[in-house]
């Protein structure tokens, strides 16, 4: 089995699975109808991307597991999502800050994956990058709008940034899998995206009148599955309950 490619697909697909789930939790509860509808669109895109990435992971693995089996029958330690996307929604500001910090990374990553040496990866990236360009547009505007809004919205957005920034570094982690995938021309080294990412974040946070924390220190453990957040287990308890309670059922 092509372990490196399998792991890479899980890293991409588990991020979108977990974040798509988080964003879908807003449905029916957003601050205004227009935002409710927009968030659902984002979640729908992420769920669609999950089907592609996990579908490809299953294909690469070659053991007959499809996207649903991978999504609903793995335990937390086999997930490869970054800790950032596992973080709970918090208030709307925290959700949009998390979204922006992820969108910025995902859009840079997908742009590079459009040149992937693997045609399947390239095809997913071509479709997904258009969706993510819009997500980024929207989350960026919202972060700027709320950062530069009222005193209350500003302080909530600063709190969200302070809380979430220590999870950003994990997106740029590097291990043997990253090295092999980069070596084979499937994806860039995550660390190579950091410069462009920092520049983008700096621009937007300046516009939003928000201050990026000085420390680059980062939590890790999600993308390699060594130490996920406690939140992930709770999410899976809810997400996988039906499939595990009735394993013989077809839905």
């Amino acid at each position: 089995m092509d372990t490196a490619l399998f792991e890479f697909c899980l890293r991409m697909g588990d991020n979108t699975l977990v974040l798509g789930h988080r964003v879908s939790e807003w449905c029916g509860h957003a601050p205004v109808l227009e935002e409710d509808i927009a968030l659902a669109n984002t979640a729908l895109d992420l769920i669609g991307q999950t089907q592609f990435w996990l579908g490809l992971a299953g294909e690469v693995e070659g053991k007959g597991r499809d996207a649903d089996t991978l999504a609903f029958r793995r335990d937390a330690w086999d997930f490869r999502s970054v800790l950032l996307v596992e973080q709970p929604n918090g208030d709307f500001g925290q959700t949009m800050m998390r979204q922006f910090l992820f969108d910025a990374w995902q859009s840079l990553m997908l742009d590079r994956l459009k040149d992937s040496s693997d045609v399947r990866v390239k095809a997913i990236a071509e479709k997904a990058s258009k969706e993510v360009a819009y997500h980024l547009d929207r989350s960026r505007d919202t972060v700027v709008g709320l950062g530069d809004g009222t005193a209350e919205s500003h302080s909530r957005m600063q709190a969200a940034l302070d809380k979430l920034y220590p999870y950003v570094g994990e997106l740029f982690g590097a291990d043997e899998i990253d090295a092999e995938i980069a070596e084979r021309g499937i994806a860039p080294l995550p660390a190579d995206l950091r410069g462009a990412y920092d520049a983008l974040i700096a621009d937007i946070m300046a516009e939003a009148t928000l201050t990026i924390p000085d420390s680059r220190w980062t939590h890790t453990g999600g993308r390699d599955g060594t130490r996920h957040s406690e939140h992930l287990g709770h999410m899976l308890t809810e997400m996988q309950w039906l499939q595990r309670a009735y394993p013989d059922a077809r839905w």
Binding site: G28, H29, A30, V32, E35, G145, G149, S153
Partner: peptide, 19 residues
């Protein structure tokens, strides 16, 4: 649930309007 969405969302609506 509707009341919570409305009340919790007030700062967001106000923030974006102010911007």
């Amino acid at each position: 649930a509707r009341r919570k969405a409305w009340d919790d969302g007030a700062w967001v609506r106000d923030g974006l309007m102010a911007h």
